[in-house]
């Protein structure tokens, strides 16, 4: 095998326009040269596209080395005029980066009780120099938390250090083109319009009409999707995909909450009877 040959795998850059800014995800497992080539190809058509823009990098599992990451930042700044103002990565990746810098084993402490600091990296034992991208780095502890600036808000609920316990709440309409990704549960106080995407590690609850795309349980396949008015373009739970039937039911004024969950490997949609799946047994006893 030729040394330095790029490992096989996706060579696409993920570029997401979220209203909080551009998020560029690097293709995983690529060398710096490969990433630079992909970047140059991608931007060859409109090299001025990112000039003066600020963007965030999604490091995903954090397979890129710190050295290469710095080089990517330089390329983005010097060749494309884009300023990287933040990175997204997993706690594990952050831990790995820290270990590489410190040459010591890093233990992630449980979050403090203080809810306002629920996701601040204070509790992760890190020396300041370990942050991957110098002073501008903004570390969002876990996976992406894309928030549509202005209309969507994001709260961390106290209690439990299990990521799945956390809920993101969104107030207002999630409109076409908006992408909401969260590692925990997502609750929307409003509608999710066609063309919008919600991807949650846990459950999705929409206190309004769900007309867009929803993917629950990207981390837990026992998740459910609940909406007051369930008319999605597509539903996914874990690995199961549900395409909506040809004729969506006519818009009715009466509330008809429905819930989608996985039963025997496929998604079942049924009227919501007041309890999420798995709750009934416990309640009875």
């Amino acid at each position: 095998m030729v040394p330095n040959a790029p490992p096989s795998g996706p060579t696409r850059l993920g570029l997401k326009h979220t209203s909080s800014g551009l998020v560029l995800s690097l293709p995983p497992g690529q060398t710096f040269e490969a990433i630079r080539t992909v970047l140059r190809d991608h931007l060859a058509l409109s090299p001025e596209r990112y000039r003066g823009q600020t963007l965030k990098l999604d490091l995903g599992e954090g397979q890129i080395s710190l050295f290469d990451l710095r080089r990517v930042l330089h390329v983005l700044r010097d060749e494309f005029g884009a300023e990287v103002v933040g990175v997204h990565c997993t706690v594990e990746a952050l831990q790995r980066y820290a270990e590489k810098e410190l040459k010591l084993k890093v233990h992630v402490s449980a979050p403090a009780e203080d809810t306002s600091a629920a996701v601040t990296p204070d509790t992760v034992t890190l020396a300041p120099t370990t942050s991957a991208t110098e002073a501008t780095t903004e570390v969002n502890t876990e996976v992406n938390t894309e928030v549509n600036a202005g209309i969507l808000s994001h709260e961390e609920l106290p209690g439990g250090d299990d990521m799945g316990d956390r809920v993101m709440t969104i107030h207002g309409t999630v409109r076409s083109g908006a992408v909401v990704e969260y590692h925990g549960d997502v609750t929307v106080f409003g509608d999710v319009n066609p063309g919008a995407q919600i991807v949650a590690g846990g459950n999705i609850v929409v206190l309004g009409a769900l007309k867009g795309f929803a993917h629950a349980g990207s981390r837990r396949s026992d998740s459910f999707i609940l909406a007051f008015d369930l008319r999605p373009t597509q539903l996914r739970i874990g690995k199961a995909i549900h395409l909506t039937m040809e004729s969506a039911p006519e818009r009715g004024r009466a509330l008809n909450p429905q819930m989608a969950s996985v039963q025997a490997g496929s998604i079942i949609i049924e009227p919501y009877r007041g309890r999420p799946p798995g709750m009934a047994m416990r309640e009875v006893s």
Partner: peptide, 15 residues
């Protein structure tokens, strides 16, 4: 309508 919805989101994001 779909495009208008997208634009409304962008207008709101532009504060």
């Amino acid at each position: 309508i779909r495009d208008a919805d997208r634009i409304i989101g962008l207008v709101e994001a532009a504060e």
